[in-house]
């Protein structure tokens, strides 16, 4: 093993943090980050699918013939996505409503299929889980950060409540005279906001 499991985990959190360093899987990034709760919820759902599919793909990597590997990956991923969809619908209905069509679309998130293909199919299951977890949490963090920026600047408030467990609420962060940039919540604002954050990442990441 070239890298330790800890390293595999860590790389997803900074070196290869999606969506910033690989400009892949941008659709959910733009669509569900109107609020921090949507961003984190989407990130966690994606993480679950990533870890499970990575685990299964790496366990089955000797059985799956190379020629039909993509088809197998897709079936495995789609199965877990359906499970997540049902689970959210049954136990986290608000989140389910907020994410809407983007839950089934995790299936076509390039990040998920990309990890199966590039990592899990070539590695043992322990590093594969670490890889899935790392990339997934990196994705969650990015989505949460974008969601937070858009929610704070776009509405002036910040609220989140995941499964009734983690509650946080702050209203009128900048005082009552603050006029929110509603632009950031609308579709065009999503592009501009992610673009500028990407630029910020470039400045911070530059050696």
């Amino acid at each position: 093993m070239a890298k330790s499991i800890a390293q595999e985990f860590k790389k997803g959190l900074w070196d290869e943090i999606p969506p910033f360093n690989l400009v892949l899987g941008l659709c959910p990034v733009l669509a569900v980050t109107k609020t921090i709760a949507g961003g984190i919820g989407m990130g966690l759902a994606t993480t679950f699918v990533l870890v499970c599919s990575n685990l299964l793909v790496s366990l089955l990597r000797k059985v799956i013939p190379p020629k039909v590997r993509i088809a197998c990956f897709i079936i495995i991923i789609a199965t877990f996505v359906t499970i997540v969809k049902f689970a959210l619908e049954a136990y986290a209905y608000d989140l389910y409503n907020e994410l809407g069509m983007f839950i089934p679309l995790i299936v076509v998130n390039c990040v998920v299929l990309g990890r199966s293909e590039a990592f899990a199919y070539k590695n043992k299951f322990a590093p594969s889980i670490a890889d899935g977890l790392g990339i997934g949490l990196g994705f969650t963090l990015s989505l949460g950060a974008i969601g937070a920026v858009r929610e704070i600047l776009g509405t002036g408030n910040l609220t989140f409540n995941i499964l009734g467990q983690f509650k946080y609420e702050a209203t009128e962060i900048f005082g009552s005279s603050f006029e929110p940039f509603t632009f950031l919540i609308e579709a065009p604002g999503a592009f501009v906001c992610v673009g500028l954050l990407l630029c910020l990442m470039n400045i911070v990441g530059k050696k």
């Binding site: 089955l60 059985v63 799956i64 013939p65 020629k67 039909v68 088809a71 197998c72 079936i75 495995i76 789609a78 199965t79 359906t82 499970i83 049902f86």
Partner: peptide
């Protein structure tokens, strides 16, 4: 044959699991 068998097994497993979760 291996390709067909593996694909069939994975698909039917997926169908079964989803029916159960549903």
């Amino acid at each position: 044959i291996k390709m067909v068998v593996v694909l069939t097994i994975i698909s039917s497993l997926s169908g079964g699991v989803l029916a159960y979760v549903n």
